[in-house]
């Protein structure tokens, strides 16, 4: 018997922000098992003194995968089995769409990761997706659907997708989405948002995301209009107008060392303008505004001296006197991790065992105005990075060799990730950031995932322990996996029949949400 290679032992933090002295949190990253144990038990496990662990606790820890008789190779085989199920069934079930109506933008933000596209000239930049290309994209989606795939969401992206001169193009895309019951998300700078409110209300938009970089002139300097016009007041007025029309808005506040004061200044300004009070009223059913969410994120800037990282943003929030709960609601990465851990603690689903971090690996169609397909949002505009194109004459998708590489940039294959306890929580990390750090899209990128996970898990589990005294906090994949026969494992890994694999997976109870 030994401690699993995917085991994490974390402190428990109580509501008073102090460590709970007599308990520790065990997390098995491979099976998604979260268990609270006496501190002395955790000490025995760390020292390998398994015989001193209480018998009933021993059985519980073995059943849930924290301690195991499996070799490392057998644990990796479990990882590969789960990744294979995800790749064959779950990922394959859905096609998401990301459309860039144009590369053009009315802003010239100094840190924009698409700045390189400006070198290609005004004519190339100003191209707007044609009616024929839009028809071809949706014909390709219809082909996917006719072959069994489900259609996911459509995200409008740019350039700037909501420039008022492109109203007709956005309407045509939205009409096509509505006909196929696809929900729409849009990432916009918000400058022309008011012009699009009628379209957003008419079609199934689920939210609008608008970023800010500070108050007033700070924002105007960093979110710079290409003609030098002020942007802050107009963006906030547009956001308020959208909310009044019942449209949900995610406001992301970019933070770097250059605009640290924006944390307090923007929060104060949002309060002064009534955004936060009106959101509280909405939650109590006292108005019909759209949902307003705001959160802080480390600006992805090429200036490494200015880059804070997600951990840096969380640290700044804490040092400004904000609580751990506030950080887990309003910090981008910490919030994502905290919401996910809380979901697991509801015990109605296993850990998400996909090893693909984002649409680049999961096979979404990211189409530029010329019909080229790209793997990653940050690779657009660089034709060398294209993985295929939409054939305008046939209405179908054609892939090149690079597509195969991206499909398998997953955490069951990246060497550093295969034996990492955070595998199913960070999934290999962002490929674009890996390129920044290592010059290689196909390396791992850990970023601040480990810190975010430890922070959120310790706080959420600690609070639950104090409130409920519950020790077994989540479901564990170790249990259904233990019931698979050798033949069933072989069939999952080798059968060419997706229905046969699905039948085994369903019988084993690995997908309780279906």
């Amino acid at each position: 018997m030994r401690l699993s290679n995917y085991e994490m032992i974390l402190p428990l933090i109580g509501a008073d922000e102090k460590e709970i002295d007599d308990r520790a949190l065990l997390v098995n990253g491979l099976y998604g098992a979260f268990d609270i144990v006496p501190k002395r038990c955790a000490d025995f496990l760390i020292k390998g003194k398994f015989s001193q662990v209480d018998s009933s606790l021993w059985e519980q820890l073995a059943r849930r995968g924290h301690i195991t008789t499996k070799s490392l190779e057998e644990e990796i085989a479990d990882l590969e089995l789960l990744a294979h199920i995800d790749r064959r069934i779950i990922q394959k079930s859905r096609i998401d769409l990301i459309i860039m109506p144009t590369y053009d933008c009315n802003f010239r933000c100094p840190y924009c990761f698409e700045r390189k596209r400006l070198a290609r000239g005004e004519t190339w930049l100003a191209k707007v997706m044609s009616h024929e290309m839009i028809q071809a994209i949706f014909a390709a989606l219809d082909d996917y659907r006719s072959r069994g795939y489900g259609l996911g969401n459509c995200t409008l992206y740019g350039g700037e997708p909501l420039m008022k001169e492109n109203l007709a193009t956005v309407r045509e895309i939205a009409e096509n989405c509505a006909q196929r019951e696809m929900k729409i998300e849009v990432l916009t700078n918000g400058y022309d948002l008011a012009s699009f409110i009628p379209i957003i209300k008419e079609f199934p938009f689920v939210f609008v995301q608008v970023p800010l970089d500070g108050v007033g002139k700070t924002n105007d300097r960093l979110r710079r209009h290409k003609e030098g016009k002020d942007t802050y007041e107009r963006i906030l007025n547009n956001v308020d107008m959208a909310l009044e029309h019942g449209i949900g808005v995610n406001m992301r506040i970019n933070i770097s060392k250059e605009n640290l004061s924006s944390i307090d200044e923007l929060t104060d300004d949002l309060k002064r303008r009534g955004f936060l009070a009106k959101e509280n009223e909405r939650r109590m059913g006292q108005n019909q505004r759209g949902e307003f969410v705001h959160y802080f994120k480390a600006t992805v800037t090429p200036d490494r001296n200015s880059f804070l990282g997600e951990g840096g943003v969380a640290r700044e929030l804490l040092e400004s006197g904000r609580s751990a709960e506030y950080v887990m609601e309003h910090s981008c990465l910490y919030g994502i991790v905290a919401r996910y851990i809380r979901k697991l603690f509801q015990k109605d689903t296993y850990v998400d065992f996909s090893t693909a971090i984002c649409n680049a690996e999961r096979g979404a169609l990211l189409v530029d105005p010329y019909g080229l397909l790209f793997p990653c949002w940050e690779s657009v505009g660089d034709d060398d990075m294209a993985v295929g194109r939409v054939d305008e004459t046939q209405g179908r998708v054609l892939w090149n060799f690079a597509k195969a590489k991206w499909r398998l940039r997953t955490s069951d294959r990246i060497p550093a990730c295969r034996i990492c306890p955070y595998n199913f929580f960070c999934k290999g990390g962002c490929a674009a950031r890996a390129k920044d750090v290592y010059g290689d899209y196909f390396r791992e990128y850990c970023g601040d995932h480990k810190q975010a996970f430890a922070f959120a898990a310790s706080h959420i589990a600690g609070k639950m322990w104090q409130e409920r005294g519950e020790a077994e906090l989540s479901l564990s994949l170790a249990e259904p996996l233990a019931h698979l026969t050798r033949k069933e494992r072989y069939m999952i890994m080798n059968s060419k029949s997706i229905p046969d694999v699905f039948a085994i997976v369903k019988k084993a109870g690995l997908l309780p949400q279906i």
């Binding site: 069934i89 996911g152 398998l408």
Partner: peptide, 26 residues
């Protein structure tokens, strides 16, 4: 690699289940 080449062909395969029923899991 052989696995990557197989993944390329998998892009063109039909999905033999009802994707609309499974897509919310993904």
């Amino acid at each position: 690699t052989e696995d990557e080449a197989k993944a390329y062909f998998a892009e063109m395969e039909d999905f033999e289940l009802d994707g609309d029923k499974l897509k919310d899991v993904a």
